[in-house]
Design a protein around this nucleic acid. Structure first.
Lengths: 202, 202
DNA sequence: AAAAATACTATATATTTATACAGTATAAAA
DNA sequence: TTTTATACTGTATAAATATATAGTATTTTT
Protein backbone atom coordinates (compact mmCIF):
# COMPACT_ATOMS: atom_id res chain seq x y z
CA UNK A 1 0.00 0.00 0.00
CA UNK A 2 1.24 3.45 -0.84
CA UNK A 3 2.13 5.72 2.01
CA UNK A 4 -0.05 8.61 2.92
CA UNK A 5 1.19 12.15 2.82
CA UNK A 6 1.14 14.23 5.98
CA UNK A 7 -1.97 16.07 4.82
CA UNK A 8 -3.74 12.90 3.82
CA UNK A 9 -3.05 11.47 7.28
CA UNK A 10 -4.53 14.55 8.84
CA UNK A 11 -7.66 14.18 6.77
CA UNK A 12 -7.91 10.50 7.68
CA UNK A 13 -7.51 11.33 11.36
CA UNK A 14 -10.18 13.94 11.00
CA UNK A 15 -12.57 11.37 9.57
CA UNK A 16 -11.79 8.85 12.32
CA UNK A 17 -12.23 11.48 14.97
CA UNK A 18 -15.57 12.53 13.58
CA UNK A 19 -16.87 8.96 13.49
CA UNK A 20 -15.66 8.30 17.03
CA UNK A 21 -17.00 11.53 18.40
CA UNK A 22 -20.25 12.08 16.57
CA UNK A 23 -21.02 8.66 15.15
CA UNK A 24 -20.97 9.74 11.54
CA UNK A 25 -18.38 10.92 9.00
CA UNK A 26 -17.65 14.60 8.37
CA UNK A 27 -18.69 16.75 5.43
CA UNK A 28 -16.14 18.44 3.19
CA UNK A 29 -16.86 21.70 4.92
CA UNK A 30 -16.29 20.19 8.35
CA UNK A 31 -12.93 18.78 7.29
CA UNK A 32 -11.97 22.21 5.99
CA UNK A 33 -13.01 23.85 9.21
CA UNK A 34 -11.07 21.43 11.37
CA UNK A 35 -7.91 21.55 9.29
CA UNK A 36 -8.09 25.21 8.38
CA UNK A 37 -8.71 24.89 4.64
CA UNK A 38 -10.61 27.65 2.95
CA UNK A 39 -11.94 25.76 -0.02
CA UNK A 40 -14.15 22.68 0.04
CA UNK A 41 -12.16 21.39 -2.87
CA UNK A 42 -9.12 21.06 -0.60
CA UNK A 43 -10.98 18.41 1.36
CA UNK A 44 -12.51 16.93 -1.76
CA UNK A 45 -9.21 16.33 -3.48
CA UNK A 46 -7.65 14.79 -0.39
CA UNK A 47 -10.63 12.49 -0.11
CA UNK A 48 -10.24 11.48 -3.73
CA UNK A 49 -6.55 10.78 -3.11
CA UNK A 50 -7.43 8.61 -0.10
CA UNK A 51 -10.02 6.82 -2.21
CA UNK A 52 -7.47 6.20 -4.94
CA UNK A 53 -5.10 4.72 -2.36
CA UNK A 54 -7.91 2.45 -1.25
CA UNK A 55 -7.98 3.81 2.31
CA UNK A 56 -11.54 5.06 2.22
CA UNK A 57 -14.54 4.68 -0.01
CA UNK A 58 -16.81 7.50 -1.03
CA UNK A 59 -20.47 6.87 -1.75
CA UNK A 60 -21.37 9.10 -4.67
CA UNK A 61 -24.36 11.36 -4.35
CA UNK A 62 -24.85 10.98 -0.66
CA UNK A 63 -23.89 13.29 2.15
CA UNK A 64 -21.21 12.20 4.61
CA UNK A 65 -20.74 9.17 2.39
CA UNK A 66 -17.24 8.41 3.60
CA UNK A 67 -16.29 5.05 5.08
CA UNK A 68 -12.91 3.81 6.15
CA UNK A 69 -11.93 0.52 4.53
CA UNK A 70 -10.62 -2.51 6.43
CA UNK A 71 -11.96 -1.02 9.61
CA UNK A 72 -10.77 -2.95 12.59
CA UNK A 73 -13.39 -4.64 14.73
CA UNK A 74 -15.35 -1.76 16.10
CA UNK A 75 -15.94 -3.11 19.56
CA UNK A 76 -13.71 -4.42 22.28
CA UNK A 77 -10.43 -4.36 20.45
CA UNK A 78 -7.49 -6.09 22.06
CA UNK A 79 -4.73 -3.55 22.33
CA UNK A 80 -1.12 -4.37 23.21
CA UNK A 81 0.77 -2.88 26.13
CA UNK A 82 4.38 -2.10 25.35
CA UNK A 83 6.98 -1.52 28.00
CA UNK A 84 9.41 1.32 27.46
CA UNK A 85 12.35 -0.67 28.70
CA UNK A 86 15.66 -0.40 27.00
CA UNK A 87 17.03 1.73 24.25
CA UNK A 88 15.31 1.61 20.90
CA UNK A 89 12.66 -0.87 21.77
CA UNK A 90 9.21 0.61 21.51
CA UNK A 91 7.97 -1.45 18.64
CA UNK A 92 4.97 -3.66 18.21
CA UNK A 93 7.27 -6.66 17.93
CA UNK A 94 5.80 -9.43 20.00
CA UNK A 95 8.75 -9.68 22.36
CA UNK A 96 7.95 -6.20 23.62
CA UNK A 97 4.28 -6.82 24.25
CA UNK A 98 3.70 -7.22 27.96
CA UNK A 99 0.07 -8.12 27.64
CA UNK A 100 -3.09 -7.11 25.85
CA UNK A 101 -6.08 -5.30 27.24
CA UNK A 102 -9.57 -4.82 25.94
CA UNK A 103 -10.84 -1.32 25.69
CA UNK A 104 -13.62 0.42 23.92
CA UNK A 105 -11.98 2.03 20.87
CA UNK A 106 -14.41 4.92 21.07
CA UNK A 107 -13.08 5.70 24.52
CA UNK A 108 -10.39 7.97 23.14
CA UNK A 109 -10.63 10.58 20.45
CA UNK A 110 -8.59 8.61 17.97
CA UNK A 111 -7.74 5.04 17.31
CA UNK A 112 -5.46 3.53 19.94
CA UNK A 113 -2.71 1.40 18.41
CA UNK A 114 -0.96 0.49 21.62
CA UNK A 115 -0.41 1.45 25.23
CA UNK A 116 3.01 2.57 26.32
CA UNK A 117 3.97 1.71 29.87
CA UNK A 118 5.76 4.73 31.24
CA UNK A 119 9.20 4.42 32.78
CA UNK A 120 10.76 7.22 34.76
CA UNK A 121 9.46 10.47 36.14
CA UNK A 122 10.12 12.87 33.31
CA UNK A 123 6.44 13.76 32.78
CA UNK A 124 5.33 13.72 36.38
CA UNK A 125 4.43 17.41 36.59
CA UNK A 126 1.69 16.87 34.06
CA UNK A 127 0.22 13.89 35.80
CA UNK A 128 1.97 11.13 33.90
CA UNK A 129 3.48 8.72 36.40
CA UNK A 130 5.67 5.66 36.29
CA UNK A 131 3.77 2.58 35.11
CA UNK A 132 0.93 4.63 33.71
CA UNK A 133 -0.32 3.33 30.38
CA UNK A 134 -0.33 6.07 27.77
CA UNK A 135 -2.67 5.43 24.84
CA UNK A 136 -0.74 5.92 21.61
CA UNK A 137 -2.16 6.67 18.20
CA UNK A 138 0.42 5.72 15.60
CA UNK A 139 1.14 8.61 13.29
CA UNK A 140 4.09 10.69 12.24
CA UNK A 141 1.94 13.75 12.08
CA UNK A 142 1.95 16.04 15.09
CA UNK A 143 1.35 19.56 16.29
CA UNK A 144 3.77 21.52 18.44
CA UNK A 145 3.04 20.70 22.06
CA UNK A 146 1.72 17.21 21.38
CA UNK A 147 2.76 14.41 23.67
CA UNK A 148 4.82 12.28 21.32
CA UNK A 149 6.61 8.96 21.28
CA UNK A 150 9.91 9.84 19.65
CA UNK A 151 12.54 7.41 18.50
CA UNK A 152 15.95 9.06 18.59
CA UNK A 153 19.20 7.48 17.56
CA UNK A 154 19.77 5.84 20.90
CA UNK A 155 16.47 5.93 22.74
CA UNK A 156 12.72 5.95 22.64
CA UNK A 157 11.12 8.62 24.75
CA UNK A 158 7.78 10.15 25.62
CA UNK A 159 7.91 13.93 25.70
CA UNK A 160 6.20 17.07 24.51
CA UNK A 161 7.39 17.79 21.02
CA UNK A 162 8.12 21.11 19.35
CA UNK A 163 9.56 21.48 15.89
CA UNK A 164 11.05 24.56 14.34
CA UNK A 165 12.75 24.14 10.99
CA UNK A 166 15.55 21.63 11.55
CA UNK A 167 15.40 21.81 15.33
CA UNK A 168 13.43 19.40 17.43
CA UNK A 169 12.72 20.09 21.09
CA UNK A 170 11.64 17.26 23.35
CA UNK A 171 10.36 18.82 26.54
CA UNK A 172 9.80 16.89 29.75
CA UNK A 173 7.33 17.92 32.43
CA UNK A 174 9.75 17.76 35.33
CA UNK A 175 12.11 20.56 36.26
CA UNK A 176 14.74 18.01 37.31
CA UNK A 177 15.00 16.82 33.72
CA UNK A 178 16.60 18.74 30.90
CA UNK A 179 14.89 19.27 27.56
CA UNK A 180 16.39 17.35 24.67
CA UNK A 181 17.50 19.36 21.67
CA UNK A 182 17.94 17.55 18.39
CA UNK A 183 19.41 19.06 15.28
CA UNK A 184 17.87 17.08 12.46
CA UNK A 185 20.79 17.93 10.20
CA UNK A 186 23.12 15.94 12.41
CA UNK A 187 20.87 13.44 14.16
CA UNK A 188 17.84 11.47 13.12
CA UNK A 189 14.61 11.32 15.05
CA UNK A 190 11.23 9.89 14.22
CA UNK A 191 7.80 10.41 15.69
CA UNK A 192 6.20 7.04 16.29
CA UNK A 193 2.89 8.26 17.56
CA UNK A 194 1.13 10.68 19.83
CA UNK A 195 -0.42 10.25 23.23
CA UNK A 196 -4.20 10.61 23.26
CA UNK A 197 -5.05 9.31 26.70
CA UNK A 198 -3.94 7.51 29.79
CA UNK A 199 -4.84 4.61 32.04
CA UNK A 200 -3.54 4.31 35.59
CA UNK A 201 -3.89 1.37 37.92
CA UNK A 202 -3.52 1.95 41.63
CA UNK B 1 -36.46 2.62 30.16
CA UNK B 2 -39.62 2.58 28.11
CA UNK B 3 -40.04 -0.20 25.61
CA UNK B 4 -39.86 0.40 21.93
CA UNK B 5 -42.80 -0.19 19.66
CA UNK B 6 -42.52 -2.65 16.79
CA UNK B 7 -42.09 0.15 14.28
CA UNK B 8 -39.53 1.97 16.38
CA UNK B 9 -37.51 -1.24 16.62
CA UNK B 10 -37.63 -1.57 12.85
CA UNK B 11 -36.34 1.95 12.44
CA UNK B 12 -33.57 1.32 14.98
CA UNK B 13 -32.58 -1.85 13.14
CA UNK B 14 -32.55 0.09 9.93
CA UNK B 15 -30.15 2.61 11.42
CA UNK B 16 -27.86 -0.11 12.79
CA UNK B 17 -27.90 -1.91 9.47
CA UNK B 18 -26.99 1.23 7.61
CA UNK B 19 -24.07 1.98 9.91
CA UNK B 20 -22.80 -1.58 9.67
CA UNK B 21 -23.21 -1.82 5.93
CA UNK B 22 -22.28 1.62 4.68
CA UNK B 23 -20.41 3.11 7.61
CA UNK B 24 -22.79 5.99 8.11
CA UNK B 25 -26.36 6.54 9.32
CA UNK B 26 -29.31 6.70 6.91
CA UNK B 27 -31.28 9.72 5.79
CA UNK B 28 -34.99 10.03 6.42
CA UNK B 29 -35.64 9.14 2.81
CA UNK B 30 -33.51 6.02 3.01
CA UNK B 31 -35.36 4.83 6.09
CA UNK B 32 -38.64 5.35 4.25
CA UNK B 33 -37.41 3.42 1.25
CA UNK B 34 -36.23 0.47 3.31
CA UNK B 35 -39.34 0.26 5.44
CA UNK B 36 -41.81 1.16 2.72
CA UNK B 37 -42.96 4.51 4.04
CA UNK B 38 -44.14 7.06 1.55
CA UNK B 39 -43.56 10.21 3.57
CA UNK B 40 -40.28 11.43 5.04
CA UNK B 41 -42.21 12.53 8.06
CA UNK B 42 -42.94 8.89 8.90
CA UNK B 43 -39.23 8.37 9.47
CA UNK B 44 -38.83 11.75 11.11
CA UNK B 45 -41.44 11.13 13.75
CA UNK B 46 -40.09 7.69 14.58
CA UNK B 47 -36.65 9.20 14.97
CA UNK B 48 -38.02 11.84 17.30
CA UNK B 49 -39.72 9.14 19.34
CA UNK B 50 -36.45 7.20 19.59
CA UNK B 51 -34.69 10.39 20.61
CA UNK B 52 -37.28 11.05 23.28
CA UNK B 53 -36.72 7.54 24.64
CA UNK B 54 -33.00 8.28 24.76
CA UNK B 55 -32.10 5.50 22.32
CA UNK B 56 -30.54 7.71 19.70
CA UNK B 57 -29.37 11.28 19.44
CA UNK B 58 -30.06 13.50 16.50
CA UNK B 59 -27.61 16.25 15.59
CA UNK B 60 -29.70 19.19 14.47
CA UNK B 61 -28.90 20.81 11.16
CA UNK B 62 -26.62 18.13 9.87
CA UNK B 63 -27.32 15.38 7.41
CA UNK B 64 -27.31 11.78 8.59
CA UNK B 65 -26.83 13.17 12.09
CA UNK B 66 -28.12 10.08 13.85
CA UNK B 67 -26.06 8.23 16.45
CA UNK B 68 -27.06 5.33 18.61
CA UNK B 69 -26.53 5.95 22.29
CA UNK B 70 -24.64 3.64 24.66
CA UNK B 71 -24.29 0.87 22.12
CA UNK B 72 -22.81 -2.04 23.99
CA UNK B 73 -19.93 -3.92 22.50
CA UNK B 74 -19.44 -7.62 22.76
CA UNK B 75 -16.54 -7.82 25.17
CA UNK B 76 -15.91 -5.84 28.27
CA UNK B 77 -18.45 -4.70 30.75
CA UNK B 78 -20.35 -1.50 30.17
CA UNK B 79 -19.54 0.81 33.05
CA UNK B 80 -21.30 4.10 33.76
CA UNK B 81 -19.56 7.45 33.98
CA UNK B 82 -20.90 9.71 36.69
CA UNK B 83 -20.29 13.40 36.79
CA UNK B 84 -19.44 14.93 40.14
CA UNK B 85 -21.72 17.87 39.63
CA UNK B 86 -23.66 19.30 42.49
CA UNK B 87 -23.85 18.51 46.15
CA UNK B 88 -24.86 15.04 47.15
CA UNK B 89 -25.23 13.65 43.70
CA UNK B 90 -22.73 10.87 43.05
CA UNK B 91 -25.17 8.05 42.77
CA UNK B 92 -25.78 5.48 40.09
CA UNK B 93 -29.18 7.00 39.43
CA UNK B 94 -29.64 7.16 35.70
CA UNK B 95 -29.98 10.93 35.62
CA UNK B 96 -26.38 11.22 36.78
CA UNK B 97 -24.98 8.84 34.20
CA UNK B 98 -23.22 10.83 31.52
CA UNK B 99 -22.50 7.86 29.33
CA UNK B 100 -21.22 4.31 29.47
CA UNK B 101 -17.86 2.99 28.42
CA UNK B 102 -16.61 -0.49 27.78
CA UNK B 103 -13.53 -1.67 29.58
CA UNK B 104 -11.87 -4.94 30.31
CA UNK B 105 -12.94 -5.87 33.85
CA UNK B 106 -9.50 -7.35 34.49
CA UNK B 107 -7.89 -4.04 33.69
CA UNK B 108 -7.99 -2.83 37.27
CA UNK B 109 -7.17 -4.65 40.46
CA UNK B 110 -10.74 -4.79 41.66
CA UNK B 111 -14.15 -4.63 40.14
CA UNK B 112 -15.03 -1.22 38.75
CA UNK B 113 -18.56 -0.15 39.59
CA UNK B 114 -18.46 3.25 38.00
CA UNK B 115 -16.20 6.00 36.77
CA UNK B 116 -16.28 9.33 38.54
CA UNK B 117 -15.61 12.36 36.36
CA UNK B 118 -13.40 14.65 38.40
CA UNK B 119 -14.33 18.26 38.98
CA UNK B 120 -11.91 20.73 40.45
CA UNK B 121 -8.21 20.66 41.11
CA UNK B 122 -8.04 19.34 44.65
CA UNK B 123 -6.04 16.22 43.72
CA UNK B 124 -3.85 17.73 41.04
CA UNK B 125 -0.56 17.20 42.86
CA UNK B 126 -1.06 13.47 42.63
CA UNK B 127 -1.84 13.46 38.97
CA UNK B 128 -5.62 13.53 39.14
CA UNK B 129 -6.86 16.26 36.88
CA UNK B 130 -10.17 17.83 36.04
CA UNK B 131 -12.31 15.61 33.78
CA UNK B 132 -10.22 12.54 34.52
CA UNK B 133 -12.32 9.44 35.01
CA UNK B 134 -11.49 7.77 38.30
CA UNK B 135 -12.41 4.09 38.47
CA UNK B 136 -14.41 3.49 41.62
CA UNK B 137 -14.90 0.21 43.43
CA UNK B 138 -18.02 0.45 45.59
CA UNK B 139 -17.23 -0.44 49.16
CA UNK B 140 -17.38 1.17 52.59
CA UNK B 141 -14.25 -0.63 53.62
CA UNK B 142 -11.01 1.32 53.33
CA UNK B 143 -7.48 1.67 54.60
CA UNK B 144 -5.94 4.89 55.80
CA UNK B 145 -4.50 6.69 52.81
CA UNK B 146 -6.96 5.25 50.30
CA UNK B 147 -8.41 7.51 47.65
CA UNK B 148 -12.06 7.55 48.64
CA UNK B 149 -15.37 8.87 47.39
CA UNK B 150 -16.90 10.32 50.53
CA UNK B 151 -20.42 11.56 50.93
CA UNK B 152 -20.55 14.21 53.60
CA UNK B 153 -23.63 16.01 54.80
CA UNK B 154 -23.52 18.58 52.06
CA UNK B 155 -21.15 17.25 49.45
CA UNK B 156 -19.60 14.33 47.66
CA UNK B 157 -15.86 14.52 47.35
CA UNK B 158 -12.83 12.56 46.21
CA UNK B 159 -9.97 12.74 48.70
CA UNK B 160 -7.43 10.67 50.58
CA UNK B 161 -9.07 9.31 53.68
CA UNK B 162 -7.67 8.81 57.18
CA UNK B 163 -9.68 7.66 60.15
CA UNK B 164 -8.72 7.77 63.79
CA UNK B 165 -11.39 6.88 66.32
CA UNK B 166 -14.20 9.35 65.76
CA UNK B 167 -12.18 11.71 63.58
CA UNK B 168 -12.16 11.56 59.81
CA UNK B 169 -9.55 13.41 57.77
CA UNK B 170 -10.15 14.05 54.07
CA UNK B 171 -6.87 15.18 52.59
CA UNK B 172 -6.55 16.82 49.19
CA UNK B 173 -3.42 16.72 47.06
CA UNK B 174 -3.16 20.42 46.46
CA UNK B 175 -1.55 22.83 48.86
CA UNK B 176 -4.13 25.48 47.96
CA UNK B 177 -6.89 23.32 49.40
CA UNK B 178 -7.46 22.73 53.07
CA UNK B 179 -7.96 19.26 54.55
CA UNK B 180 -11.47 18.52 55.71
CA UNK B 181 -11.86 17.41 59.33
CA UNK B 182 -15.02 15.61 60.27
CA UNK B 183 -16.01 14.70 63.78
CA UNK B 184 -18.26 11.70 63.37
CA UNK B 185 -19.96 12.45 66.68
CA UNK B 186 -21.39 15.65 65.24
CA UNK B 187 -21.48 15.07 61.50
CA UNK B 188 -22.20 12.11 59.30
CA UNK B 189 -20.02 10.90 56.48
CA UNK B 190 -20.09 7.79 54.38
CA UNK B 191 -17.51 6.15 52.19
CA UNK B 192 -19.11 5.30 48.86
CA UNK B 193 -16.15 3.61 47.29
CA UNK B 194 -12.46 3.79 46.67
CA UNK B 195 -10.47 4.81 43.63
CA UNK B 196 -8.57 1.96 42.00
CA UNK B 197 -7.53 3.51 38.72
CA UNK B 198 -7.87 6.34 36.30
CA UNK B 199 -8.60 7.05 32.66
CA UNK B 200 -7.66 10.32 31.03
CA UNK B 201 -8.61 11.51 27.58
CA UNK B 202 -6.55 14.21 25.93
C1' DA C 1 12.04 18.17 -19.78
C1' DA C 2 7.42 16.87 -19.51
C1' DA C 3 3.85 14.75 -17.00
C1' DA C 4 1.64 13.65 -12.93
C1' DA C 5 0.69 14.18 -8.23
C1' DT C 6 0.22 17.25 -4.32
C1' DA C 7 -1.86 21.14 -2.17
C1' DC C 8 -4.42 24.41 -2.15
C1' DT C 9 -8.05 29.22 -3.22
C1' DA C 10 -12.30 30.67 -5.18
C1' DT C 11 -16.85 30.36 -7.11
C1' DA C 12 -20.95 28.16 -8.55
C1' DT C 13 -24.79 24.97 -8.59
C1' DA C 14 -27.57 20.85 -8.79
C1' DT C 15 -28.91 17.77 -5.52
C1' DT C 16 -29.55 15.96 -1.05
C1' DT C 17 -31.47 16.40 3.16
C1' DA C 18 -33.63 18.01 7.40
C1' DT C 19 -37.48 19.79 8.92
C1' DA C 20 -41.71 22.32 9.26
C1' DC C 21 -46.70 22.36 8.35
C1' DA C 22 -51.25 20.37 7.29
C1' DG C 23 -53.89 16.40 7.48
C1' DT C 24 -56.12 11.49 8.77
C1' DA C 25 -56.72 7.63 11.77
C1' DT C 26 -56.14 4.48 15.72
C1' DA C 27 -54.76 3.08 20.25
C1' DA C 28 -53.36 4.01 24.90
C1' DA C 29 -53.09 6.82 28.97
C1' DA C 30 -54.85 10.42 32.22
C1' DT D 1 -63.58 11.95 28.06
C1' DT D 2 -59.95 14.41 26.71
C1' DT D 3 -55.33 14.26 25.98
C1' DT D 4 -51.23 12.08 24.42
C1' DA D 5 -48.69 8.83 21.77
C1' DT D 6 -48.47 6.08 17.64
C1' DA D 7 -48.45 5.74 12.74
C1' DC D 8 -48.67 7.34 8.88
C1' DT D 9 -49.63 10.46 3.68
C1' DG D 10 -48.53 14.61 1.20
C1' DT D 11 -46.37 18.98 0.16
C1' DA D 12 -43.00 22.44 0.59
C1' DT D 13 -38.65 24.69 1.38
C1' DA D 14 -34.49 26.51 3.59
C1' DA D 15 -30.25 24.81 4.46
C1' DA D 16 -26.70 21.44 3.96
C1' DT D 17 -23.79 19.11 0.92
C1' DA D 18 -21.37 17.03 -3.00
C1' DT D 19 -19.20 18.12 -6.77
C1' DA D 20 -17.75 20.45 -11.01
C1' DT D 21 -14.87 24.01 -13.00
C1' DA D 22 -11.12 27.38 -13.21
C1' DG D 23 -6.97 28.79 -11.37
C1' DT D 24 -2.01 28.94 -9.04
C1' DA D 25 2.07 26.89 -7.19
C1' DT D 26 5.21 23.29 -5.67
C1' DT D 27 7.05 18.79 -5.63
C1' DT D 28 7.71 14.22 -7.41
C1' DT D 29 7.93 10.91 -10.94
C1' DT D 30 8.78 9.42 -15.51
Amino acid sequence: MKDLTAQQSKVLNCIEESINKTGFPPTRAEICQKLGFKSPNAAESHLRALEKKNIISIAGGSSRGISIKNKKSSSGASIPVIGLVAAGSATLASENIEREINVDPSLFSRNVDYFLKVKGLSMIEDGIYEDDLVAIHKTNDFKNGDLAVVRTEDDVTLKYIFKENHKLLLKPANKDFDPIHIDLRNESAEVEGIGIGLIRKN
